[in-house]
Design a protein around this nucleic acid. Structure first.
Lengths: 205, 205
DNA sequence: GTCTATAACCGGATAGAC
DNA sequence: GTCTATCCGGTTATAGAC
């Protein structure tokens, strides 16, 4: 058999613990100092292990960062998907907006990390997705399903543009919150839903 | 007198040319490969000069990047301000949105560079501005002046939030354009103005 | 003014002791 | 599994020749 390569097979052990430990340290480090400053030595120091240990559990520095970014992204998607799934389709877009903002406000370090991840990706010419598959495609999907049920399609008639605009507002609200933690993100979420003309789950009582 | 320090005093000569040459090369480099990849040697190579030359005209690598970022920002502000100034106050917000998107669409490299500049700044904990002075403060100003003249204040009643949301949409539209140059930014600008419920200069004919 | 050469440093990654 | 030691490459910045 080939040599043991951690991460590819069943991690059956404290391996998972070490990996989690390193990943969490990396997330905090990136959130605090940025992608570029998250060097191997700093990651190791933050996690309380040696450089060699980090490269034993992961393949390279890039692999550590990728794993960290995948992790925060997976958590975000899981959270949002759970709330969107058991919601009336006509209200799914509003739920999406609230869930997104709530999660990122609750985990500022994750928000900052995702910000850095996106920019690092934009830097190294990475056309990771074929044209059309933009970051807000899932949201566009929800908008499409919502407007097909309720007749008077609100907001911009172009679904892609609607998703892009709503997504941009979400980003902006989260960014503002990161700079000013006193900013009322719940009110901002309400404002987004209002300008988009969407059904608001919190309206009916 | 003290030694001559370029940039601080009258640049009286081909100094300005060299500086401009280096700055432009830096802008393209950052746009293409990102902030982190814009090393001194790469900047020098891109500008067609030696490393020493770069550090002669600027103090350090960071100074070069700062100068480049200041430059693209100054151009953007100049362009937008010119269009906003000779516009009816009630339509200033719409003009701002269009000017911003038009300029950044016309100069994608500048848009990418500003993106990288922002992220690099977010990384090194740089509270460059006291709380409240957000990036969209000028826009908030325009919105305030516009709504004080026309009675039925459109969009979110909170001016700060209105500016943040509109700004976020501008960012999102530009980002989308960078990924898909076929994206219709003029239509997107119209959509932004529509959802905000603003007076549109292109409406009356 | 511009360049070459060099100093001092820090980055990632490997080898191997324990 | 985890660590230390080491190597190599690339980085900024300086010194000084031209």
């Amino acid at each position: 058999m080939a040599a043991y390569t951690p991460g590819t097979d069943a991690p059956t052990r404290i391996e998972r613990l070490r990996r989690a430990q390193i990943i969490n340290a990396t997330i905090d480090l990136v959130a605090a100092r940025g992608h570029a400053a998250a060097s191997l030595s700093r990651i190791a120091a933050a996690a309380g292990v040696a450089k060699g240990t980090v490269i034993y559990h992961f393949v390279s520095r890039d692999a550590v960062l990728d794993a960290a970014y995948d992790h925060v992204l997976a958590l975000l998607i899981e959270q949002v998907a759970a709330q969107v799934e058991d919601a009336d389709p006509s209200r799914a877009p509003a739920v999406y907006v609230r869930a997104m903002i709530a999660h990122l406000s609750a985990h500022p370090a994750h928000a900052r990390t995702l910000e850095q991840a996106g920019l690092a990706a934009a830097a190294s010419g990475e056309p990771s997705r074929p044209p059309g598959r933009s970051r807000w495609e899932p949201l566009a999907q929800l908008i499409g399903e919502a407007t097909s049920s309720s007749d008077p399609a609100p907001g911009p008639s172009d679904i892609r543009t609607a998703a892009i605009l709503a997504g941009g507002m979400i980003d902006a609200v989260v960014r503002e919150f990161l700079e000013d933690p006193a900013y009322d993100t719940a009110a901002a979420a309400r404002a987004i839903i209002a300008v988009m003309g969407w059904d608001d789950p919190e309206d009916d009582r």
